[in-house]
């Protein structure tokens, strides 16, 4: 009797093994990234959480490795509480500003741009991401400065009164745009906008035209279609984008240092506590806040039905 099949090589035996046990191959492929995610990513997060439950000895300045809620209590001190509130408000404002700016752009790109215009759109959104973040922030500082191009343009067009009115606003105004919360808001919105546009555009792209037509067909005006069909269907994208803009603003420590009135933000506080003050537990407690806020935000969004269209 002769063999019908030729003798198998080692490679054949291996592929046969994988064919018979597909889970084995999957396990081999997925283990390294899972290790990365589990150990390095989540592990460091756990270490952070652990740190925040330690405290610092006020006399020696040494970290006391004992479980305590004392550090979290410190967060509630007025000056720390102000930092948290300020960061939260700025993040919310930046997110809302980004949603408003991004929606028309994303809508146009998803529904109307075709071929070459689509390429122009992607390039326009991505191009700013290719240059250094610091360069962009410093460029904005120059644009917003008292001697900057914005003031110059306002003078030339005799619209100084608008600029002055904005700067005279209590709380968010200031000496010049580059030293005010308004300026900081503008810079934050500029640097994070692409992270809002892209997920929004992806969500809008998935809405079939026939769904908008069905709404119109049933008697809805454009405004009604927008409110009852487009926004709910784009909501998962809006939420995804807002996770980016919100958490990126909450954690940033460079923009508040360069633009604005040097008021403290969470990122800056973490930077200072960790570096100069050596108060790692408090830095860790500060760093936990954005995480908690994001979790609350997501669960609220889920409860409101934001992910129903997924």
């Amino acid at each position: 009797m002769t063999a019908i099949l030729p003798a198998k090589s080692a490679a054949d035996r291996l592929t046969t093994l994988f064919w018979r046990k597909p889970k084995l191959l999957l396990a081999l492929l997925i283990t390294p990234p899972l290790l990365w995610l589990g150990v390095i990513y989540l592990g460091s997060l756990a270490a952070l959480l652990l740190q925040s439950f330690y405290s610092i000895d006020e006399f020696s300045g040494m970290v006391v490795r004992e479980f305590t809620l004392k550090t979290y209590g410190e967060l509630l001190r007025p000056q720390n509480y102000d930092i948290i509130l300020r960061t939260l408000l700025m993040s919310a404002a930046v997110t809302i500003g980004s949603v408003i700016l991004a929606f028309p752009i994303a809508y146009y790109a998803a529904r109307y741009a075709r071929g070459r215009w689509k390429a122009v759109f992607y390039l326009g959104i991505m191009l700013p991401l290719w240059s250094s973040y610091l360069v962009k922030v410093y460029a904005w500082k120059l644009i917003l400065a008292k001697e900057g191009i914005l003031t110059w343009a306002a003078t030339q067009t005799h619209t100084n009164f608008l600029l002055d009115a904005a700067l005279a606003l209590p709380g968010i105004g200031g000496n010049s745009l580059s030293t005010s919360y308004i300026g900081m808001f503008l810079v934050f919105t500029y640097v994070w906008l692409p992270y809002m546009i892209l997920p929004m555009q992806a969500a809008l792209e998935r809405v079939p035209t026939s769904m908008l037509e069905a709404s119109q067909d049933l008697g809805a005006t454009r405004a009604q279609t927008f409110r009852t069909v487009i926004v709910p269907l784009a909501l998962p994208g809006i939420i995804a984008g807002s996770i980016f803009t919100f958490s990126l603003t909450m954690g940033d420590y460079i923009i508040p240092q360069i633009v604005g009135n040097s008021a403290n933000f969470i990122g800056m506080a973490v930077y200072q506590l960790q570096g100069t003050a050596g108060n790692t537990p408090l830095a860790a407690a500060f760093a936990v806040i954005p995480i908690v806020i994001m979790l609350i935000y997501l669960s609220l969004a889920k409860r409101a039905g934001a992910f129903d269209a997924l």
Partner: peptide, 14 residues
């Protein structure tokens, strides 16, 4: 005063 049954039904998923 005309309504349509769309080929892909176009029901609102949310």
């Amino acid at each position: 005063n005309v309504n349509t049954v769309f080929q892909d039904y176009a029901l609102f998923p949310h």
